[in-house]
Amino acid sequence: MRPSPTGPSEAPKATRKPLVAGLLLAAGGGRRLGGRPKALLDSGGRPLVEYAARALLDAGCAPVHIVLGAAADDVRARAHLPGCVLVTNPDWPEGMGTSLRAGLASLAGTGARAVVVALVDQPGIGADAVRRVRDAYASPSSLASAAYGGRRGHPVLLGADHWPGVTEAATGDRGARAYLRRREAEIEIVDCSDVATPDDIDTPEDLTLLDR
Results as ranks from 00 to 15, higher is better:
4 S>F: 09
4 S>E: 13
8 P>C: 07
8 P>K: 14
9 S>C: 15
13 K>E: 15
15 T>F: 15
18 P>C: 12
19 L>K: 04
23 L>V: 07
24 L>E: 09
26 A>T: 10
26 A>S: 03
28 G>M: 09
28 G>Q: 04
31 R>V: 14
33 L>G: 05
34 G>F: 08
36 R>P: 13
36 R>I: 11
39 A>V: 11
42 D>C: 06
47 P>I: 08
47 P>G: 00
47 P>S: 14
48 L>D: 01
48 L>F: 04
49 V>R: 00
54 R>M: 05
55 A>R: 10
57 L>V: 07
57 L>T: 13
58 D>T: 04
58 D>Q: 08
59 A>S: 13
60 G>Q: 08
61 C>G: 01
62 A>W: 11
63 P>V: 03
66 I>Y: 06
73 D>P: 08
77 A>S: 07
80 H>A: 12
84 C>Q: 03
85 V>Y: 13
87 V>I: 14
90 P>Y: 07
92 W>N: 05
94 E>F: 09
98 T>H: 12
99 S>T: 10
99 S>W: 02
99 S>I: 13
100 L>R: 01
101 R>C: 15
105 A>L: 14
108 A>K: 13
112 A>H: 02
112 A>E: 03
120 V>A: 00
121 D>E: 12
128 D>E: 15
130 V>W: 06
133 V>W: 05
133 V>P: 10
133 V>C: 11
135 D>C: 09
136 A>P: 00
137 Y>F: 13
144 A>G: 07
145 S>W: 00
149 G>C: 10
153 G>W: 04
160 A>C: 08
160 A>G: 09
160 A>S: 13
164 P>W: 12
172 G>E: 09
175 G>V: 02
181 R>G: 15
183 R>H: 11
187 I>A: 14
190 V>Y: 09
191 D>K: 08
191 D>A: 10
197 T>C: 11
200 D>E: 08
205 E>W: 00
205 E>N: 11
207 L>N: 01
207 L>A: 10
208 T>Q: 06
208 T>W: 14
